[in-house]
Each structure stands twice: as structure tokens, then as C-alpha cells.
Design a protein around this nucleic acid. Structure first.
Lengths: 160, 160
DNA sequence: TTTGAAAGACGATCGGA
DNA sequence: TCCGATCGTCTTTCAAA
């Protein structure tokens, strides 16, 4: 992970479909070098995949919400079962397993508020392990388009 | 948005870098047809972009957390200013503006717990508009890899 | 809209620096 | 590790159905 790798990663985060030649040109290296770098990053698992970002409104999923959930008992069996079954529901974008007050946070995207309510009442509240849940509709979201590596703490800091 | 468009979108979500020929072959259409469909989807804004997914540990961001924030006064000026400035911080992956109990939810990824604490204490709590915040460390997350369109409610439901 | 064919561009490989 | 040349494949265009 040197400067070049970081630059490659940053460019591919914002546009994963640019040609290898274009990427190489931006970085000032030969296309073959660039290709080998990208392959090495993929082989090492740094690049985990390439995904198209789709407009949720076009998918008829204009309403997003977070649902914070508490389950009991807090055993591995209950956690894994809940995570897997909820994660498989089409309304759910992401399941987060949390430390602290809530046990799970579900990010969901549905057609409209009626469907959100139906999801909460008909699907979630049917689950016996759930002790409580709170839902919050999402008005807006702002993504950071490019995630840069954060600096590692210097092992032995010296004045420069 | 017919069946073909949906199929294209689903394939490109899981692998945005597959060749146009391969995508066309999977769908049983000519490459030129496939290319035109993808272009139309892009032109209409259904496909919003293509992004590489990067391993957060490789970016030295192994610790993720959510931070729920309340700000006051809840005016547009305060909301927009907070959203923009927090959204620009390197630690922040996404800023969500919420309805309900909390005003914002910040998804952050930092080096370790020390840096999470430092972020909360040194950067967030400095902001005068913040009334309160709660943070929850993320143990796991499970993404739904492919988002399918949800069915539109039938306009005039009839028994089939 | 969809298609097949043609032309130009690109990814992939390899030998050498 | 990086680069430049080569080969085979792909994207892209376009005229026709």
C-alpha cells in the first residue's frame, strides 16, 4: 500500500469503469503497470468488487428508514438467526450489529410510508425475539464519495 | 423500466466491470442492444455511477460506528451547515438527516477506538449546535448485494 | 428497438531493462 | 517492479430490418 496504490483506489472508487489506459494516464504510469497494480490489489482483497450505484427512486424504493432493534436473549443463536433472516428480506439494504443500547440497526428502503408501516407491523413485530424497535425516516443522505486511507499513528514520533 | 432493464441493473450491481459482451450473453441479447440499454439507463439517471468497494481494514479504518446527533435550533441554516461540514470530515462515510428522535446519524470509520474517542471529543463536541450525541460501535454489517425493484401497488386490484 | 458487421480501442501477456 | 510492443478481444458505431 504505497502512494500509487492509494491513488488507484481513490480513482476507482469514484469511477470503477474507466479504462485501464485512462487510469494509467491520470497516474502517469504505463498501462501494464497499472493493470498489474490493480490485479495485486484485487488479489490481496483490498479491492472487494465493483458495483453499479442505482437510483432508489427508480427501483420504486423512494422511502428509506433506519430501524433500531433490541432482541432477547442476546445469544449468538438469536443474533445470527435474526441477522440472516432480516438480511434476506427484500426491503432491507443493510443489517448492522451494534454494541451499546440497541442490538441491530436495519437500513431499509421501501415504496412509501404505507409499506414502511406494513413492514414494521406485519413482518418485524411478528418476530418473537424482538423486545423493542424504533424507526426513523431518512430525509437526506450525503455520501463521502472517496474514502482515503487514514494515517497510521507514527510508531516513534520525532519532531521534523 | 422493463424486465430487461431490471436484469441489467441487477447484474451490474454485483459486478460493474463485467464486459458488455458477457452481460449481453447472460441476458440473451446482442452486445449492441445491451450497450444501448445501459446507456439509456445512465442517461435517465437510473444508473448513477460505478464504484469500487474497498476493504476498510486496508484503508486503516477497521473501527466503524454510528453517531446519533441532536442539534438546536433545528433551522435549515443549522442543518445544512452541520451536514456539509461533518460530511466533509475524512472519518465520516455517510451523513443521514433523520425524522424523529435524532436529527442526524453519522456513519464513521476510523483507525481504532482511540481515534473514535478522539473524534467524538475533539471534533464533534466542539460544535456549538450539538445538543447531544450517542455513539454505537458496529460489530458486523451484512449488505444486501443486489437491490431489486419493489412491485408497484396495483392501481385497481382484481382477483386473478 | 434490435441486430450483425466493420473499425478502432482496449486488455492481457511477455521479454527486457 | 516497471515498461513498451504484440496479439486477440472488446467496445462502439452505423445501416438495415
Amino acid at each position: 500500500m504505497d502512494e500509487l496504490d492509494s491513488a488507484i483506489i481513490e480513482h476507482l472508487q469514484s469511477d470503477a469503469r474507466q479504462s485501464n489506459r485512462e487510469l494509467a494516464r491520470k497516474l502517469g504510469i504505463a498501462p501494464s503497470t497499472c493493470l498489474e497494480r490493480v490485479r495485486a490489489l484485487t488479489r490481496r482483497g483490498v479491492i472487494r468488487g465493483y458495483h453499479a450505484e442505482i437510483d432508489l427512486v427508480a427501483l420504486n424504493r423512494g422511502v428509506q428508514a433506519f430501524i433500531a432493534v433490541q432482541v432477547r436473549p442476546l445469544s449468538r443463536a438469536v443474533i445470527d438467526t435474526f441477522k440472516d433472516s432480516v438480511g434476506g428480506m427484500p426491503e432491507v439494504l443493510t443489517v448492522f450489529v451494534l454494541a451499546g443500547g440497541d442490538d441491530f440497526l436495519l437500513h431499509v428502503a421501501v415504496q412509501d410510508l404505507d409499506h414502511l408501516h406494513a413492514f414494521l407491523v406485519d413482518r418485524l413485530s411478528k418476530r418473537r425475539e424482538i423486545v423493542s424497535f424504533r424507526s426513523s425516516v431518512i430525509y437526506q443522505r450525503a455520501h463521502n464519495p472517496v474514502l482515503a486511507p487514514l494515517p497510521a499513528p507514527a510508531a516513534a514520533p520525532r519532531p521534523t
